[in-house]
Design a protein around this nucleic acid. Structure first.
Lengths: 206, 206, 206, 206
DNA sequence: GATGAATGAGAATTCATTCAT
DNA sequence: TATGAATGAATTCTCATTCAT
């Protein structure tokens, strides 16, 4: 299971994943072909099929790899939360920290092409949304949250998280903490609770 | 200008757009080919190219058509707004009404493929985001809004609008008013201002 | 036959021929399409077919137009010739003068593309070759020429004329007289009769 | 390097070249499509593109293959030449021998289509012209030739060689020796040095 | 398992030509 | 006659996938 053979196998698989991530970011998912991915490795075309069935599968593997990495952290934050504040701020903080850390992979699912902007949610990511929803329901049951529409609340958190992340990553320096503060304040107190800022007139370009 | 010739041209162009919208919804943008679109019309393959250069162009035409239709309405709402409440609620109400009305087109840009969920923002849509941002800045200048981070606030509104719309459209009956109330309350007062609801345990499937 | 209608017809036909000549020179015969020719006029595509059946026909019309223009001159020179010298020098002189005058059209049949060099002989041009051959036979019969292989002599004259013309047109200034002198001397006395020249080491690039 | 794989590759490439040559001769370069070439092999369409990018590339490969074969022979003749006679006669003799030997390939670059006659010179052929020009300059420097216009002399030899070859190949029997004698005599002594012949009144049809 | 050439279905696109206006 | 959009056959070319080595 961990002989030399096994090592090569792992190395090949990883080489494909790494190459694919780069190519997806560069060309976009739609325009990427299996050939493009292979060309970005030093493997032969046939070898690809020893590891993946299609570019879809590679894409999911990359995307899942990350969802799987961040989901448990998000869960842990929410389970540990004793107050609404902790639930909300823990979730956003973890998410933005992760997005900042792993922004190359983030770029795979959230791509700004020449003209179009695309966001792709894989099953694993969507499962993360369901998890959030379930945790919200649990929190409502526990009396932590008022009995609000859990779908819409989940949707709101997801929408704010992904959309702000986009603009956060376009800034220099990248400041996940500020992003988390903003989102948290919004959810806890609405507009009037938001941190005030020096306003920039530059056009946003995420 | 309105001879039989001109009429036929308009009809053909519209036939392609209609067919394309259907095919995009059915197969997803990525999987759709120009051939698929042509096959869904009763036109000859060459005719497609008299009107569009590629499926990208058709997609943009469809997407833009709608952005162009809803953007002025959104602007009007925001310009008319005399209070924060009007600004926020007017924006969401208009957006969700539009999404409910034109949900077929909405499905084109926000599509649930076999497994993946994709959202695509065309330049025209993105221009709508910039417009919102500009209006927020104006409102801040006018003292209507506190001086908050306009990019993040715009991002939050966009994220919440698109994400809630998704779940709203999955419900029966579709209730844009409730969606608008939810989003508005969130932005005006945060979580504790949200309308309470009878909680459904069914999994959300947007 | 010469009403306004007739004038327009002639003008249209000429417009097509002119445009075609330009396009043939620019793109080469092979790469040129009927659409390219039409685009270079301000006529509609259908109009083309009122005048020509295909690009082949246009090409031939252009090529023939010229062959028809120069062939009688060549004939006249040869018929008038009372000596071998007059026959040879008259032929070359007329040919090179024509090539220099009408070099734009000459470029249509003798094109230097990026990499390849192409020469195309239309039936009208080939008929000109046959005419030369016939005149040579007449001259042999008349005792003007020795009884040599008329085909090969004709071929030699044609080969020398077209090939030298190529290089002549690449020079600045273009000197048809020098070209004619060279070719004439070669045919009358061979190498040792050739005019001596200051030798240029620059690579020839015809 | 010479496994079964490598053998198959060579065989496939050659099969394409052979098929292409046949098709070019049959249909003419202009009318030939990549499909035509593929159809003339028993390979799959995609295979063509493993070896060549376009019909242009195949054409050049065929044409170059031959230019490369004959050029060294021509050079050798000219370098070995100790007199003008040897230079001229060696060049023509070698050229006409080659044309007679390899007349199938010769037909590719000098083709009589339905109506038009086309001659195409690829870069490799043109390089052969430059080589001749360089050798002429060397010979002039060496005092072998008088200081004549090397471009025009080269052009004359090329023109005569290709044009006579055309008619030579149309005869039965094909007699490269006679062709060489004719061309050599022309260049050495002009018209009056040409071999006399029994005159045929049949129209030449090259 | 790795290789990489062969495969051939099928996608995009062009283009000559027609024909209703 | 002129127009120019529609036509659809035909062509180029790509690409996922297979399979002999």
């Amino acid at each position: 299971m961990s002989g030399k053979r096994e090592q090569t196998k792992q190395a090949n698989k990883q080489a494909i994943l790494d190459a694919a991530r780069d190519v997806f970011v560069k060309l976009g998912y739609g325009a990427t072909t299996v050939r493009d991915i292979i060309r970005a490795t030093d493997l032969a075309s046939g070898t690809f099929y020893n590891y993946f069935k299609s570019k879809e599968e590679v894409f999911q593997a990359i995307s899942d790899e990350n969802a799987i990495r961040v989901r448990p952290r998000l869960r842990a934050e929410r389970i540990r939360a004793r107050t609404v504040e902790e639930f909300i701020s823990g979730t956003f903080r973890t998410f933005f920290d992760y997005a900042a850390d792993d922004r190359r992979t983030f770029a795979v699912i959230r791509r700004n092409a020449d003209t179009m902007r695309v966001r792709m949610d894989t099953p694993e990511i969507i499962a993360g949304f369901d998890e959030l929803r379930a945790d919200l329901l649990t929190a409502i049951d526990a009396g932590l949250f008022p009995p609000v529409d859990a779908d819409y609340l989940m949707a709101s958190m997801v929408g704010v998280a992904f959309e702000i992340a986009e603009y956060m990553l376009a800034r220099d320096p990248i400041d996940p903490s500020a992003a988390a503060d903003f989102a948290t304040a919004l959810f806890l107190g609405g507009l009037k609770a938001l941190p005030t800022a020096t306003i920039s007139r530059e056009p946003a370009n995420a």
